[in-house]
Design a protein around this nucleic acid. Sequence first.
DNA 1: CTGAAAGCGCTTACAG
DNA 2: CTGAAAGCGCTTACAG
Lengths: 331, 331
Amino acid sequence: MSTTIKDVAKEANVSPSTVSRVLSNNPRISDETKVRVMEAIKKLNYHPNVIARSLAVKSSKILGLVLPDTAEDLFHNPFYIQVMAGISIYAQKKGYNIMYSFGKNEKDEVNILKNFTDSKLADGIILLVSKTKDKCIDLLKKRNYPFVVIGRPENAHDVLWVDNDNFSAMYQVTDSVINRGYKNIAYIGGPSDWNVSNDRLSGFLKSIQVHGIDYDKNMVIEDNEFNEDLGYTAMNKILNYRKPDAVLTCDDQLAFGAIKAIKERGLNDIFMVGFNNTPLSGYQDPPLSSVDINSDKLGYSAAKLLISYLENEMDISHYIIETKLVERNKK
Amino acid sequence: MSTTIKDVAKEANVSPSTVSRVLSNNPRISDETKVRVMEAIKKLNYHPNVIARSLAVKSSKILGLVLPDTAEDLFHNPFYIQVMAGISIYAQKKGYNIMYSFGKNEKDEVNILKNFTDSKLADGIILLVSKTKDKCIDLLKKRNYPFVVIGRPENAHDVLWVDNDNFSAMYQVTDSVINRGYKNIAYIGGPSDWNVSNDRLSGFLKSIQVHGIDYDKNMVIEDNEFNEDLGYTAMNKILNYRKPDAVLTCDDQLAFGAIKAIKERGLNDIFMVGFNNTPLSGYQDPPLSSVDINSDKLGYSAAKLLISYLENEMDISHYIIETKLVERNKK
DNA sequence: CTGAAAGCGCTTACAG
DNA sequence: CTGAAAGCGCTTACAG
């Protein structure tokens, strides 16, 4: 059997309570016994059983992650793994463990959440994406379970979240494109049930409005997935209507498809900008400029926000993570 | 407070032991009380506390994953997330939870393992990569902790592992390239402290030997990371020595760098094949053929192997996962 | 078929 | 400064 706190107590000639106290660095323990207990711990190579501890303190120091269905996006976009890395880095610092589970669909995601919460396994939850009418958010709110969302939720009131300023990021991209002299700009957006899609689209629309460019609904398409084929189709639709001189997209995948459509027509004077700065963007021909959203920092901050909330050190309700346009097309 | 097994017992007018038994589907419980207890459970919306259960049965049903340092490879190669997805799918089926942690370097990885094992949090461990003189494997072996490695370990004796047949996969790729008429073949390999690199290199060497092609050490380079820049440098070194008519690489990243070097010299008659079938390979110009290693299945099988071992249903010590050459270059 | 009791390995008021 | 005791929410041999 592995050694327990009792063994240590016996070895050090103190009570288990005392061992527990030196372990938790209780200030009321004399230095002398502290030393004696530490020696016993060392000698017996004792390591506390965190499960027993969790039961006693009613807190597992485990955070639960639910990942969306295994869509194409998941494997083409390093976003998820980067977020997970960021979360892990911060959690380690604070002595938390991270549990994850992949949902096959929204219903499955909700079930995973139920499992995490019902079983009292996770102290808190991090949602990696945020949709409109998000069932996961609803559930967590209803259960009053601690959680943070990556992506500003629809109703941000009394929920913790971290996000880029997607509105402003797309606003600025649009602005800079217009300032380069492009006026005839098409936009390929993402699924309208993802908040991020709506924010970016709004940023685009606001910017052209400010610049006095008329909104032409045929030049703006909202796809319902972040996926190359849809970008390809959307671009063709736009090209059949009118040739733009610049195209902005809500996501790199969409841009890749669009580039394909553009190339097929032998066009090479359309200026493009993608979003999310996936590795693929550097490999397009010509390389695609794209907005870096700092995925690892999103994860890191999400963990930070959740943990400080759990430990009652919480002062703020959200973090905004900076974005950066990575320019690759020369002009 | 949340409802416990005692509340249910009271409600159903039985003892906690009985509730526990119906929960675990103990056959010795009468149907009548089973029903009564189930009703009470439903009524009180009771969900067992898995932490308490874990303490009682001394098993957490948690599997621990340690991911390698956040190297470039991690974000460019969907391998890791795919493996994680595969693991998650199987684990969910079996009621296991998955914990992960990112190591910054090998020492850090070992510390994470120590934490997982010392704390008794994880019932078993899955290592996502396998190196030569692997410190993680050594630790786990020494501690006699249940684990499985993805990637055949150096000393496969009494360790559980899943892997592709990398030797044979590269052997066959080489074979087919030779059969297409290429004789002057260069090879860019990966770090020699990764078992996978060695296996693939051996497959290549064996195949050229079988075909009676002389081994020319200047045409074979072993890089020490899976990274584009190194592939680029390696290719230049080869080209400075002699122009090959085909190039095989241990990993797509290396191939991408090599392609860059080839293009810079205006060459376009070198036949290339990559490995791992990352999404980027389809975007090369021309698209790169690559070997798909079935990452999600590697993960799925790893979880399966570990869980069946933990539950004493284990019959075999490893799984070999099939690979498939995805042809993209026409010739 | 069911219950009382002990135990899993910790923590923490309470008392001194 | 330290210990005895009760408790966290389960499970399971033992007894009937």
